[in-house]
Write a protein that binds this DNA or RNA. Structure first.
Lengths: 99, 99
DNA sequence: TCTGCTTATAGCATCAGTGCTATGGCCTGG
DNA sequence: CCAGGCCATAGCACTGATGCTATAAGCAGA
C-alpha cells in the first residue's frame, strides 16, 4: 500500500542512525501501533475519515499515523483507543515474562 | 513530597477542562507512569541522576516526568524502560478484558 | 557549620507531533 | 467521461515535550 511512500525511507533512515537504538524501538513501536490501528479500523469497516471524526482528529493525521509517519502521542493513542472502543495500556513489564 | 508543587495544580486544572475527557486520560496515564517509574527506580536504589544517565536524559527531565509534569513521549518511555530493564508495552486491549 | 548528594523547578532553545487545508492518484458507480 | 469517496502527502502554524543549565531546599555526615 505504501510503495512510493516517503516515510518508509524516513523511518529506515531513522532506525539506521548510530546510537539511536532506543529511538529505533520507539519508531518500531509507532509502526506496529499504526498497523494495529489500521487493522482494527478496517475490521470495523471504517474509513480513515470516520475514525478521524470519532477520534477528534483529521483524516490526514490518521493516515500519517497508520503509515507510521510519526511516533504518536499518548493523547492521540488514547483518543484512538476510545474511538475504537479499546483500552490503551502502557506499562513497563519485566523483560522475561513478556506480555 | 510534592506539597507546594505547581504541577499538581496544573494537572488538576488540565483534567478539569471541559471536553478534554480524553486528554484527562492521557494526563492520568502520565501521572501513573511517573509513579511507576519512581517506584521502580527507588526499588533499584537509584537516584534520579543515575536513572537519568542510564536513560540518556537529565535529572531534571526525570524529575519532571516522575512528577507527572508532562505527558511523556514513547521515545522517552522506551529509554526509561530500557534503563530499568523492563519492556515497554503499549497496546489496545479490548475494554472488557482489561489487562 | 560547611560539604555534598538528592529532588523540585525555572528559563530557554529546539524539535517533533498534530491540526488544518488542499492536492493528486485510484477506483467505482452513474 | 464525470462525480464522489478513500487514502497518501505536502506545507504551514502552533503547542508541547525534551534537553541543558542553574538554583533552591532538605538532609545527612564530617
Amino acid at each position: 500500500m505504501n510503495d512510493r511512500v516517503d516515510w518508509n525511507d524516513l523511518r529506515e533512515r531513522r532506525m539506521a542512525e548510530p546510537g539511536v537504538a532506543e529511538a529505533y524501538e520507539a519508531t518500531r513501536l509507532a509502526f506496529e501501533l499504526g498497523q494495529e490501528v489500521r487493522h482494527l479500523r478496517e475490521r470495523n469497516g471504517w474509513s480513515q475519515s470516520q475514525l478521524a471524526r470519532a477520534a477528534s482528529m483529521t483524516q490526514s493525521a490518521v493516515a500519517r499515523f497508520e503509515a507510521g509517519g510519526t511516533v504518536p502521542t499518548l493523547a492521540v493513542l488514547e483518543r484512538l483507543a476510545r474511538a475504537l472502543d479499546r483500552k490503551l495500556d502502557v506499562k513497563f513489564n519485566p523483560k522475561a515474562d513478556a506480555a
